[in-house]
Write a protein that binds this DNA or RNA. Structure first.
Lengths: 188, 188
DNA sequence: AATATAAGTCAATATGACTGACGTAAATTC
DNA sequence: GAATTTACGTCAGTCATATTGACTTATATT
């Protein structure tokens, strides 16, 4: 290998450090380009999901299964339509992963007691166990990242994430994520 | 519709508010389960990428094209191997999207001046324009989210994201994302 | 009785990823 | 100079996750 490139695998830039017109440092009509945050979001989110992905692979599940199981675990008795609204996927996309989760006894469907068209979704004990395990894994990553921040760090990160949400959905999502976790055993 | 469920599309919980054993509120050996942050990360990242996805769709590009174009834009003259290391995908996965970006004149390949096996990658003016435009879109989202935080909010969010990275890759990534943006026109 | 909703299903398709193998050119090492 | 390694590309096949559009069944609502 020549040594013009790649001291470390990621330090790949490699242009000669020619003089740079400062006006090129920014572009468009934007006062501050957040290259660092844009890229860090990409890398951080990837590392954040990697561990859970590995655990899920042991059950031949993917991230889609995780999302479905998680929100059923967190919202016992949720109806299919509302799950579709949360995940913003189509019935067909949900269908396959939900069927696998039901077939492998991670999720149960129960007819709605009032509206019998509904098939209310509950995690089984097995499902709650896996979902909780994945929450533990991801919570540990978050707690490690937060513990070195100033004391109100977690609240500030939370506020940042809320501010990143689309304004029109923000209230609904804040309500959804702020619910206290209340596992409810299936009625059957 | 019965009115036991769904005042708003996302407020779907719907279990009767039966008494709950407080010991069930936490589980595992984890002191604090960050349900809110886990879920907010999912929703925030989705909203963060949605706008760029829409713009990319106009060119029949997906998020994979965005990632390739972005890191080429940001690291002019990067070699294919280093791009693969950054993106953590296989040569085959990169191949298709890179070919489309080259065919449609967003990216140029130039033989390495020293090591002629290399095909150093540069964004074309057209490529820089699209990449910059997407950076502007996402920077605006970030700046809007940051402006309501305390004064050191941005630095704290950045610190949080860095802490979320895998320890072994952290230094390389911090170096990568901290580079000043220096667009360099292709040599040809 | 007519309409709307909840849920499931069918067929066809697209994207973005994967594995494993193979080939070529060029650089490095022995 | 020969052997090995590296950079890059390509082939064939597969998989996971998503899409659209149409259709059915059961049940609720108007």
């Amino acid at each position: 290998m020549t040594d013009v490139n790649s001291k470390t695998p990621l330090s790949s830039g490699s242009e000669p450090s020619n003089g740079v017109d400062p006006s090129q440092l920014l572009h468009g009509d934007q006062a501050s380009c957040r290259y660092d945050l844009i890229e860090l979001l990409f890398f951080a989110y990837r590392d954040f999901t990697a561990m859970a992905d590995d655990r899920l692979a042991e059950f031949d599940f993917g991230r889609a299964h995780h999302r479905v199981l998680h929100f059923v675990h967190r919202n016992p008795g949720i109806m299919v339509t509302d799950l579709l609204t949360i995940l913003q996927i189509t019935k067909q996309s949900l269908g396959r992963v939900l069927k696998q989760l039901v077939d492998q006894d991670f999720i149960e469907q129960q007819p709605g007691p009032i509206d019998r068209r509904q098939r209310l979704l509950h995690a089984t004990p097995k499902g709650h166990e896996l979902a909780s395990h994945l929450v533990d894994i991801q919570s540990e990553l978050l707690n490690r990242a937060i513990k070195d921040l100033p004391d109100d760090g977690a609240a500030l990160v939370k506020q940042f994430l809320i501010q990143m949400l689309d304004t029109d959905k923000r209230d609904d999502i804040v309500r959804l994520v702020s619910k206290t976790y209340r596992p409810v055993p299936p009625v059957g």
